[in-house]
């Protein structure tokens, strides 16, 4: 078959250095659910030794979180995230698309409902048409679930113009078997919002950077540090104890993690969780598609949060925020889960 970029697939030398970084390998201890094992499967799909549509092969395309934790540890620099997108782009065609994903993709594609819901939920008001930027991306998930995040981002930097029109950058589509559509949506967004696009979602940042170029995109913490928007150090006040949850695509895809700590460290005392950099199990649509694995992946993190004795957990991606908030509540912890924007705007 001709599913994968042969240059990217050819890069893997099967050394196995990715195994200890992989959350699903940690769950199963099974080569087939490791990045190297999945790449062996991809090679098998290409040379015909396994079928793309074999249920056991499909299971591995589905079980992968797509967190890309295997990429920074890869000695050969394999772009695993791209290979996974290409895999699902073929494997999740037509009736093979997971049924839970379909309404989500449809909803974010036709954004009228999204706009109405978002407005009802009172996210930040979009700015004027044809503004030169910098623009604030009103992400599709945030509009509906966390409308306060865009208002908080505007409070941190009033110069940010909330972008008009559809908010979805297409990351959701690219990660769920609609690679071409996801890229087209990102390009359309880039045309509509010229200049720098600032996003409060790690997943959107990595997808947009991949399509539009790294220089067009800034994640909020990068923006705050770059523009010198850090609040002056507060003295004499009790600083909250804060744990950070990295965004996988932000950290593993774009290498952004230090600016988050610079920003949080300006207003709070950082308590690093041992698993701060590890996937929380939200992983886009993963927590909906595979709730059992998702719950197993977040369980040790909730124990760490309980042990750390923190006041807040700060996230930089709406999916992580939802996942952690749900898990922390379910565990009965008195810990608030907030977005970086909300912390920086002094709303927490």
């Amino acid at each position: 078959m001709n599913v994968f970029d042969p240059e990217v697939l050819g890069r893997c030398m099967s050394c196995g250095f990715c195994l200890p970084a992989c959350p699903t390998y940690a769950l199963t201890g099974d080569e087939a659910s490791s990045p190297r094992g999945r790449i062996t499967l991809m090679r098998g799909i290409e040379d015909g030794t396994v079928s793309l549509f074999d249920p056991a092969v499909q299971e591995q395309a589905s079980m992968c979180l797509g967190c890309r934790a295997c990429e920074p540890v890869c000695p050969a620099g394999v772009s695993y995230g791209l290979l996974l997108e290409q895999w699902r782009d073929t494997a999740w065609r037509g009736r093979d698309t997971p049924w839970l994903v379909r309404p989500l993709l449809a909803l974010t594609r036709h954004d009228l409902v999204l706009r109405v819901l978002g407005r009802l939920r009172r996210h930040a008001r979009p700015g004027p048409r044809r503004h030169p930027g910098p623009h604030l991306l009103l992400g599709c998930v945030e509009r509906v679930l966390f409308p306060g995040v865009s208002r908080a981002a505007r409070a941190v930097d009033p110069d940010l113009q909330p972008g008009r029109g559809p908010g979805c950058c297409g990351a959701l589509h690219a990660h769920n078997g609609r690679l071409g559509e996801g890229e087209a949506m990102a390009r359309a967004l880039g045309d509509r919002l010229p200049g720098t696009i600032v996003t409060t979602s790690g997943g959107c940042a990595a997808h947009l950077a991949g399509v539009l170029g790294r220089d067009r995109v800034a994640e909020l913490s990068e923006w705050i540090v770059r523009r010198g928007l850090l609040p002056p150090a507060r003295t004499g006040q009790a600083r909250p104890r804060v744990a950070i949850q990295d965004s996988c695509h932000l950290r593993n895809g774009l290498g952004v993690s230090a600016t988050i700590r610079t920003a949080v460290g300006a207003v709070a005392e950082i308590v690093e969780l041992p698993s701060a950099r590890d996937c929380c199990g939200a992983a886009g649509t993963y927590s909906l598609l595979r709730p059992r694995e998702s719950a197993r992946i977040i369980a040790p993190k909730v124990r760490e949060i309980a042990d750390a004795g923190v006041d807040l957990v700060v996230t930089v991606n709406p999916g992580c925020q939802r996942q952690l908030r749900t898990a922390v509540r379910r565990a009965g912890l008195e810990v608030e889960v907030v977005h970086l924007a909300e912390l920086m705007a002094g709303q927490r």
Partner: peptide
């Protein structure tokens, strides 16, 4: 004994060597 498991265990870190087991036992 499924096809995906047998394929994944056909390799170790050695280039150019590839042979599927019939069954993987843990």
């Amino acid at each position: 004994t499924d096809a995906a498991t047998r394929r994944a265990y056909a390799r170790d870190a050695t280039p150019l060597f590839d042979a599927e087991p019939d069954v993987v036992v843990q």
